[in-house]
Nucleic acid binder design. Structure first.
Lengths: 204, 204
DNA sequence: ATCCCTATTGGCCTCACGGGCGATATCTTG
DNA sequence: CAAGATATCGCCCGTGAGGCCAATAGGGAT
């Protein structure tokens, strides 16, 4: 199993190397510090699985993910994240990730995930899957594309009029989108919406 | 040098162990997964240096830091963070951390920091120190305690009247604080203030 | 082909927000 | 002691924000 590790923290890369070092069948063929480097690497060095961190400077893991699967459909991607926020997980899985494990997971869990994915399956860590299934929880992370656009611009401090101009729609429409964002996130003000958006990884 | 590692991500703990494993003089005597566990550990197991992650569930690193220094003045603390945001760094140093290194730093940098701190000095990683000295940059992260209170409540979606009641002050005063928050963060709306606050680690 | 749901678009109305400007008491710091 | 930062409160005022209601287009379900 040829593996490539992509994470901007060298401490994490070393940890992964260490965790997987005694597994004969796992061969770490390369490491990347960000998404751009990873894509360059993949141009010359094929891999079976990419262990991909979500947060990286420049081209993030979530940015690189669709690009990888598009260019190299044979390559599986396992997301390695710190966050168990449903929004992150949903986005990653909808973008085509084959696995999702947390950085707090131990050696055995990680290896189980890699093996399952190598076999062609998918693996989502227990705690994460539980969060995902949570029925009572507000289904944060399910904003429409347009609503997401609006939320991003709101987080930049734009007022409705500016958002309207930026998106080429009327201010009234922006307000409707915002109202619907409020409903879905269960908030009552744009400040809170931005807070929830950032905390759950919906934006930025 | 007796070292304790506190980080909620086992991948990171393994990475650190690995990085430091061939240094004879460094002895990793224990590991903790959060601040509470760390404080328990210290009750029975003394250490020279604690390598402390800022973000941990429950009792965070920044919560535990003053407590550690208070109870065990001999123990030095080196912060191990993902963030080079000046706000984080300032807070950590003002709370009495003896060192500050990033998770993206390599083996040599980490060891240099530990040695310097063990000698009784302080060590702040180059890139971090540079950010800190940045004169032109708005000095984000220097809100007064009261302003911070207000910002936190704003991020919860409270409107001025509610914040006023929560803090037991008048609405006019809340507005004054907010205005001053805007000035310092260089923003023009509460939504943007919350965004900046979260992104720079001032709140949450 | 019809019905339903969602996404997207829009107008009207009221109140909270934010700008401007000023004021007082405390506490640190030079 | 003077100077500056912190925390407190006030009034005015214009506009942006959020609540209420409505319409159109497209994708699925039966």
């Amino acid at each position: 199993m040829r593996l490539i590790i992509a994470d901007d923290h060298s401490v994490v890369r070393d940890g992964l190397r260490w965790m997987l070092s005694d597994r004969e069948e796992i061969d770490i063929v390369a490491e990347a510090e960000d998404g751009a480097q990873l894509l360059e690497l993949l141009a010359t060095q094929s891999a079976d699985i990419v262990l991909l961190d979500v947060r990286m400077p420049g081209v993030s893991g979530l940015d690189a993910l669709p690009e990888i699967l598009n260019r190299y459909p044979e390559t599986k991607v396992v997301i390695l994240s710190m966050h168990d926020e449903p929004a992150y997980v949903r986005r990653a899985l909808s973008l085509g990730a084959a696995g999702y494990v947390l950085k707090s997971s131990g050696r055995s869990e990680l290896i189980r995930a890699l093996e399952e994915v190598a076999r062609g399956g998918t693996y989502v860590q227990g705690e994460v899957a539980a969060q995902l299934a949570e029925p009572g929880a507000v289904r944060v992370g399910e904003l429409s594309p347009r609503e997401l656009d609006v939320l991003v611009l709101m987080a930049r401090g734009m007022e409705n009029k500016q958002v309207a101009r930026a998106l080429g729609i009327s201010e009234a429409t922006v307000k409707t989108h915002i109202k619907s964002i409020f409903e879905r996130l269960g908030v009552r003000s744009r400040a809170e919406a931005v807070a929830v958006g950032l905390r759950t990884g919906l934006i930025e």
